Amino acid sequence: EVTIKANLIFANGSTQTAEFKGTFEKATSEAYAYADTSKKDNGEYTVDVADKGYTLNIKFAG
């Protein structure tokens, strides 16, 4: 089991951190699914992958 950390960075400057656990593939998939659901309210996003994929910096356009 691994933990994927997602740092969500919103257009207004606020941030949120979420953690997803499971296999690398499952946790990563859940992090992207979470970003997709947040996209409806926060606009399109880009992802900067860090820490060999264990940290995702997800920046929303607003």
Rank of each mutant, 00 (worst) to 15 (best):
Q16T: 12
A50P: 03
K39W: 06
K5F: 09
I4C: 01
T46W: 10
V49D: 03
I4N: 00
E44T: 10
A31D: 01
K39F: 09
A11D: 06
G22S: 04
L8E: 00
E30N: 09
L8M: 09
E44K: 07
S29E: 14
Y32W: 07
I9D: 03
K26P: 01
N7A: 05
K5A: 05
G13F: 05
K26H: 12
K39V: 14
A35P: 01
T46A: 07
A61S: 13
Y45G: 00
T23H: 07
K5W: 07
N42S: 09
T55V: 11
K21Q: 10
T37Q: 15
F20K: 01
E25R: 07
Y32V: 06
Y45N: 00
Y32S: 02
G43A: 05
K39P: 03
K26T: 12
Y54K: 07
N12E: 05
E30Y: 07
N42E: 10
A35I: 10
T55N: 04
S38G: 11
A18L: 15
T17I: 11
L8T: 02
K21D: 05
D51V: 00
T3S: 08
G62L: 07
V47H: 02
K40W: 10
E30I: 05
V47P: 00
G53F: 02
A50C: 13
T23F: 07
T37A: 15
K5P: 00
K39Y: 07
D41N: 11
Q16L: 14
A6L: 15
A50Y: 10
Y45E: 01
K26F: 11
Y45R: 00
K52H: 15
D48S: 13
T17A: 08
E30K: 09
A50K: 11
F60R: 00
T15N: 08
D51W: 02
N57V: 10
T28R: 09
T23G: 06
A33S: 09
D36T: 06
S14Y: 13
K40S: 11
A6V: 15
F20M: 02
E25Y: 07
Y32K: 06
G43Y: 04
S29R: 14
S38W: 15
A33P: 01
T23W: 06
K5L: 10
T55W: 04
N12C: 11
E44Y: 09
V47R: 01
N7Y: 11
G13I: 03
Y34Q: 04
Y54S: 05
K59Q: 10
G62R: 07
A35V: 07
T55G: 02
E19S: 11
G62Q: 10
N42Y: 15
V49R: 07
T17E: 09
V47L: 06
Y34M: 09
A11L: 08
E19N: 08
T46L: 08
A35R: 00
A61T: 13
D48F: 11
T15M: 13
I4E: 01
L56S: 01
Y34C: 07
I58L: 06
T37H: 14
E44W: 10
T23R: 06
A33K: 12
A11I: 09
T55M: 06
F10R: 03
V2L: 06
Y32T: 04
K52M: 14
E25D: 12
N7I: 15
K59V: 13
G13Q: 06
G43P: 02
G53A: 03
A35E: 01
T23P: 09
G22F: 02
E25I: 10
I58M: 10
A11M: 09
T46S: 10
F10A: 03
Y34T: 04
T37M: 15
K40L: 12
F20A: 01
K59S: 11
E1Q: 13
F20G: 01
K52E: 15
L56A: 01
I9G: 03
F24V: 07
F60A: 00
L8D: 00
T55S: 05
Q16I: 15
A61C: 13
F24S: 03
F60I: 02
Y34N: 03
S14P: 07
Q16F: 12
F20Y: 04
I58Q: 01
N57C: 07
T3M: 08
T55A: 04
V2W: 04
D41I: 14
I58T: 00
T28N: 06
V49F: 11
A61N: 12
Y34W: 15
A11T: 08
K26D: 13
S38N: 15
V49Q: 07
I9E: 07
I4A: 00
L8N: 00
K59T: 14
K26L: 09
A11H: 09
N7K: 09
I58H: 00
G43Q: 05
Y45T: 01
D36A: 07
F24K: 08
S38P: 02
K52Q: 14
D41A: 12
A31E: 02
E44R: 07
N57M: 07
Y34S: 04
F60D: 02
G62N: 10
E1D: 12
Y34R: 04
D41P: 05
F24G: 02
S38Q: 15
F10E: 02
S29P: 01
F20L: 02
F20Q: 01
V2K: 05
K59D: 05
D41K: 12
V2R: 05
T15I: 15
N7Q: 08
V2Q: 05
E1P: 10
T3E: 04
E1F: 13
Q16P: 01
V49N: 05
A27G: 03
